[in-house]
């Protein structure tokens, strides 16, 4: 098992390196002269030259990349052009809202999708089945920002149940945080619920048709214990993979949702940074999101191995 995990880990390293090159090059090519941007309005040519030296911009590109990477590995992403503070510090100040949003979204999705998907599989053609199909199709088709505005229109403006927008930090009280993140996580969960419901339904169906389940039924066990004891346990592996895979849609969703709901997290920071041409921040956030995404997939692969030992051997 351990060697399997190691093997998987080692294969992700070239992918991560490739991504870092891609991110570095894409944004370095485009950013014009960072020294001129950093220098501001009243900068002289000598000052620009000094900043260039300081940033190592005179070096060949591969050397610049290694320099950037070695700094990045130590958690130093340089200074934001726009916010005039270390990018690392900037990012740390924005992590909390995004983490809360992501965790809550995961929780909401799992709580809705797994029961719904299981119910749909147990009774094909029932209301739960049609509902799961509808949820899946709508989840894939209606953009997160449209869902967001629909939720705001209904729950905040019409019913006045939740704050319209904004974010309350955990230090202001967990309840306030929950109130300010429940709508965004619902909006964000739509895509996810669609995906997860379908996968749950399919994997549960597959297990239900397996011989040992039929045997259990023949032994006279009630349907519900069957579901819990055997079916979900055996359907877990694909579901876990999808939870991880869906992280991609979660990240895209975070970028949009934080803009709709005015949540000062990493997603909005990235949009703001792109609009302000703040390349060090954009580089850092893309890299962090991607590394996170790759690692989550890695974890999913490994846990798949644990849940379904046939994979690892």
């Amino acid at each position: 098992m351990f060697s399997y995990a190691m093997r998987r880990f080692i294969t992700t390293i070239p992918v991560l390196l490739g991504i870092s090159v891609l991110v570095f090059l894409t944004l370095r090519v485009s950013s014009g002269d960072p020294a001129a941007i950093l220098g501001g309005d009243a900068v002289t040519t000598e000052q620009i030259e000094a900043i260039r030296q300081q940033l190592g911009l005179g070096e060949p590109v591969w050397k610049q990349y290694l320099l950037w990477l070695s700094h990045a590995l130590r958690g130093d992403f340089g200074v934001s052009y726009y916010y005039k503070m270390p990018v690392t510090q900037l990012i740390l100040s924005r992590v909390e809202p995004t983490m809360v949003l992501a965790v809550l979204t995961l929780a909401v999705s799992i709580l809705i999708a797994i029961p719904l998907g299981t119910a749909a599989a147990l009774r094909a053609g029932s209301i739960a089945d049609s509902l799961s199909t509808a949820v899946a199709v709508v989840g894939f088709s209606v953009p997160v920002f449209v869902v967001g505005y629909a939720l705001i229109g209904l729950f905040s403006i019409k019913l006045g149940l939740t704050p319209v927008q904004g974010y309350h930090r955990l230090s202001d009280g967990a309840l306030a945080t929950l109130a300010s993140t429940i709508l965004p996580s619902l909006a964000l969960a739509t895509v996810y619920i669609g995906l997860l419901t379908r996968i749950t339904r399919a994997s549960v169906l597959e297990v239900l048709n397996a011989d040992y389940v039929r045997t259990a039924k023949a032994k006279g066990l009630m349907p519900l214990p069957i579901t819990i004891k055997h079916v979900l346990r055996n359907a877990a592996a694909p579901i876990v993979t999808v939870v991880a895979m869906g992280f991609a849609s979660l990240i895209s969703g975070v970028v949009v949702t934080e803009s709709v709901f005015n949540i000062p997290g990493l997603g909005r920071l990235m949009v703001d940074a792109v609009l302000a041409r703040d390349y060090p921040s954009v580089q850092a956030i893309i890299l962090i999101f991607t590394v996170f995404y790759v690692l989550i997939n890695l974890l999913a692969d490994i846990s798949y191995g644990i849940l379904d030992p046939r994979v690892a051997s």
């Binding site: 992918v15 991504i19 891609l22 991110v23 894409t26 944004l27 991609a248 849609s249 990240i251 895209s252 970028v255 949009v256 990235m270 792109v274 954009v282 893309i286 999101f289 991607t290 995404y293 790759v294 997939n297």
Partner: peptide, 10 residues
């Protein structure tokens, strides 16, 4: 490996 929207934004 890069989420679609991040790649597009880059």
């Amino acid at each position: 490996a890069i989420p679609a929207i991040l790649l597009a934004i880059a």
